[in-house]
């Protein structure tokens, strides 16, 4: 029993290494700037969805307010850079810490709520954050914040036209979230969360401190999401509440994990690899009509995948299905 778990984990680590190497080598055959941009956004969302997965998947707390952590992260690193001159390479850690703390602050009252009450409370907290930033002149209000270009610099994560540096930066981010999820899966916390998700009463009787474990999940999840936000801000060069804090962004963060497979190491990656290119391509080829065909396809795809593959797209891979089977 013990050995088979260890063997499986070693197995996953090896596959993870292979996937990482494959992604790192993608720019070798792909020189086209637009496709490179698509890959960067896809990998960024894979990382964000993995961060969401820590709270939503492993811990089973369906958060629909992650845009708040993303937005706060993007504002923290950007404002530290513009107001205090702190380079974003340091600022992104500050972004992670602040977002993680905010997640704790929000988790403290919200984890008293269960099920749909929790989900709706996260929507509401996210909306409050959005509205406050929109009306807060100190952070640029509705006008948003421009990040001026001061020449190529790794410390400031600014590159004139090159995509490669960002490719590796977001890959590093996604790999970090994956490793965090991997480590958590095997840790005491990971077991506690699975217990919380499956049966709160049983978990309590096993001596798991449910509240503390949820708080830990929220802090990690929010913190990583904030780092993703900082990277996004530096990549795009402009942030405003509508593009980093609006409610639909929370869904965009959760969706790859849910459709790829929640509580699964590979789900967010697979979900992002399917969803992000699908939405980009449907926009490029159908969006020009302006008649909502792309929305119908996108919505229809979500419904279909959710109904046909409730375990997520990851279940299409047979070796995964075999592993899941005994647990069911």
């Amino acid at each position: 029993m013990e050995n088979s778990i260890l063997r499986r984990r070693r197995h996953e680590l090896i596959i993870g290494g292979i996937v990482l190497a494959g992604l790192a080598l993608l720019p070798v055959p792909i020189k086209d700037v637009y496709t490179q941009n698509l890959i960067i956004i896809t990998v960024l969302f894979a990382g964000l969805a993995q961060a969401w997965n820590i709270l939503g998947g492993y811990c089973g707390q369906i958060s629909l307010g992650h845009a708040l952590y993303f937005g706060i992260g993007s504002y923290v690193s950007t404002l530290l850079y513009l107001r205090l001159g702190i380079p974003p390479t340091l600022g992104l850690f500050a972004a992670g810490i602040v977002s993680g703390l905010v997640a704790l602050l929000i988790g403290w009252p919200c984890f008293r709520l269960s099920g749909h009450y929790y989900a709706i409370a996260t929507v509401v907290v996210g909306e409050i954050g959005y509205l406050l930033f929109l009306n807060w002149d100190f952070v640029g209000g509705a006008t948003g914040v421009f990040i001026p270009f001061h020449g190529e610099s790794w410390a400031q994560l600014q590159f004139k036209t090159a995509k490669l540096p960002y490719h590796f930066v977001v890959l590093g981010f996604a790999a970090a979230t994956w490793l965090a999820a991997f480590w958590l899966e095997g840790s005491r916390w990971g077991f506690a969360w699975r217990a919380v998700k499956d049966d709160v009463v049983a978990a309590r009787s096993l001596g798991v401190n449910i509240f503390a474990s949820k708080m830990a999940a929220a802090a990690l999840s929010g913190g990583f999401t904030g780092i993703g936000g900082a990277l996004y801000a530096q990549y795009v060069g402009y942030i405003d509440p509508d593009s980093v804090l609006a409610g639909h962004f929370s869904i965009l963060i959760a969706l790859p994990a849910v459709l790829g497979g929640v509580g699964n190491l590979w789900g967010p990656l697979i979900g992002a690899a399917v969803l992000i290119p699908a939405s980009e391509l449907s926009r490029s080829y159908l969006g020009g009509s302006g008649r909502g065909v792309d929305l119908m396809l996108y919505g229809g795809l979500i419904v279909l995948v959710a109904l046909a593959r409730p375990q997520g797209l990851v279940s299409l891979f047979s070796w995964q299905r075999k592993q899941n089977a005994p647990a069911a």
Partner: peptide, 16 residues
């Protein structure tokens, strides 16, 4: 090119 009114997408489309 379609920006969907999203600053990030507008940026990517201009680059393309």
């Amino acid at each position: 090119a379609d920006s969907q009114n999203d600053p990030q997408k507008a940026r990517a489309e201009a680059e393309r």
